[in-house]
């Protein structure tokens, strides 16, 4: 139960579809505030994650609830645009009220060895974020090797990313446990060297409670117990929440639950 509730409180409830509308975002926000309408004691999720043009809608629904609004930016998900556009994208999202920005790195630059460009870009976006927290999406599915993941993680941490995040959710494979392991090692090492705590967010492909609990164990064993908070660990997910809610009911009720007992939003 503790693990399930902790996982719920770490979810960045996400909708990143071309078909997103204000109605869709509003209903997701309601879900974020009260994930299980029948059971008020269920914790709120950490954040709702949307595209920049939906930030204002999400903000209006979540102001004062403690649930953050996260926005993807920097020509998400491909990151293929010019710097000016990426920065404008970021500033717009922040102006609209985003508490957190999820940027994508330039994988092309990274894979061609142009690490300086990647670093500079993260720096500039971090500056554009102002007070908003920055999550740096490495898109590990495109980086291909653990070495690359480790290197990109370190680059992002050096450049000032508050979180390193595995994936956009638009590329397969998205988050995997081994990749998350590598990233957790990176933040652990960063902490040892600098004393600073930075976060990790696996995103995409985590659908079951069992998976979520495996990640929590990894967080505890690899990074350490102080990372078991929504300030330092998040799940980027859209369908995970309902499985967590169903398993929560199963634990409490003593029998298996079903999809009709959790909400479609």
């Amino acid at each position: 139960m503790w693990a399930i509730d902790t996982a719920i409180s770490m979810v960045d409830l996400t909708t990143l579809e071309g078909a997103d509308t204000a109605g869709k975002v509003r209903s997701l926000a309601a879900k974020a505030r009260r994930p299980d309408p029948d059971r008020g004691e269920v914790p709120k999720v950490a954040a709702v994650c949307v595209y920049p043009d939906m930030v204002a809608t999400a903000k209006a629904e979540l102001e004062g609830t403690g649930v953050h609004v996260a926005s993807v930016a920097t020509a998400f998900p491909s990151g293929r645009s010019i710097m000016a556009v990426k920065l404008a994208d970021t500033r717009y999202a922040v102006e609209q009220g985003a508490d957190e920005i999820d940027m994508v790195i330039d994988r092309g630059a990274f894979l061609s060895g142009n690490y300086g460009a990647v670093f500079d870009e993260i720096r500039q976006v971090k500056e554009a974020c102002g007070a908003a927290h920055l999550k740096v999406i490495l898109e590990t599915g495109e980086l291909a090797t653990y070495d690359n993941v480790r290197r990109a993680s370190w680059l992002a941490l050096l450049a000032g990313g508050d979180f390193i995040k595995t994936s956009t959710g638009k590329v397969a494979p998205a988050a995997t446990l081994p990749v998350t392991h590598v990233m957790l090692q990176a933040v652990r090492d960063w902490h040892r060297q600098t004393g600073e705590l930075r976060g990790v967010k696996p995103a995409g492909g985590i659908r079951s409670t069992k998976d979520a609990i495996k990640y929590l164990v990894a967080v505890h064993e690899v990074a350490g117990p102080e990372w078991l908070t929504a300030d330092l660990f998040r799940f980027g997910a859209s369908t995970l929440l309902n499985d967590l809610l169903m398993q929560r009911r199963t634990q409490l009720d003593g029998h298996y639950s079903g999809p009709d007992y959790v909400t479609v939003d």
Partner: peptide, 9 residues
């Protein structure tokens, strides 16, 4: 018993 109580049955 697990099938009899399962909410998705």
């Amino acid at each position: 018993p697990w099938l009899a109580s399962h909410a998705d049955v």
